[in-house]
Design a binder for these strands. Structure first.
Lengths: 98, 98
DNA sequence: TAAAAGTGCTTTGTTTTTCAAAGTTAAATA
DNA sequence: TATTTAACTTTGAAAAACAAAGCACTTTTA
């Protein structure tokens, strides 16, 4: 039997980053505050996890306005989609033995 | 939309503990060294994760002998099976939106 | 118009978690 | 007898997670 965890992506070990990605897969764009409320996080905590995902180029940021109010939204990148899918495939392979 | 990560079990955030559980689900008993080789871990690292799982009563230890040589094996408990399944269900629910 | 509140962070510092390395005890093998 | 193996425990360092506070800016409210 080979190492069942070797293909899991370390970035997605975090439940929060997993949650962000899962939200971004179904919402092609979501705001900082919506995400914050959805995942029940403090600003700093969310911001740092978003930063990790951005560094990995799994998500990208859009800074814009709603009317004249600033609004930051996030979306998943092609690379992010691919990496997330690969992770889920690895997870599935790992547990399909059930 | 409600918090998609609320039902994930914190104990299974760790890829290693996830790996241990997934191995134990299909092997009703496995030895320390087999697990160590399978997951490619140092003794101390594996031992401490096994300890976490044991504290949670998700696995149990059997200390015995092969001939007169000590042999430690691990198996999953009913509680562990249940908790692991609940975690996988939560994961699945989270990603079935795809 | 002054105060309060919201947005989206960054910074700071603490707590928690992870991990490798070394030490340990007892038995097995060369 | 010396070395090796099994299965840890202990120690300590590094990394990660997190809350709280601060901040710059804008908008809303009193």
């Amino acid at each position: 039997m080979k190492n069942p965890i070797a293909d899991l992506n370390k970035i997605f070990d975090s439940r929060i980053r997993l949650g962000v990605m899962s939200v971004l897969v179904v919402n092609n764009e979501i705001g900082f505050n919506d995400l914050k409320q959805m995942l029940e996080l403090t600003d700093g905590n969310l911001a740092s996890h978003l930063n990790t995902l951005e560094q990995a180029e799994f998500i990208k940021v859009h800074k814009g306005f709603i009317g004249r109010k600033t609004s930051t939204t996030y979306s998943i990148t092609a690379l992010g989609k691919q990496a997330f899918k690969a992770h889920l495939d690895a997870l599935e392979k790992m547990i399909r033995k059930l």
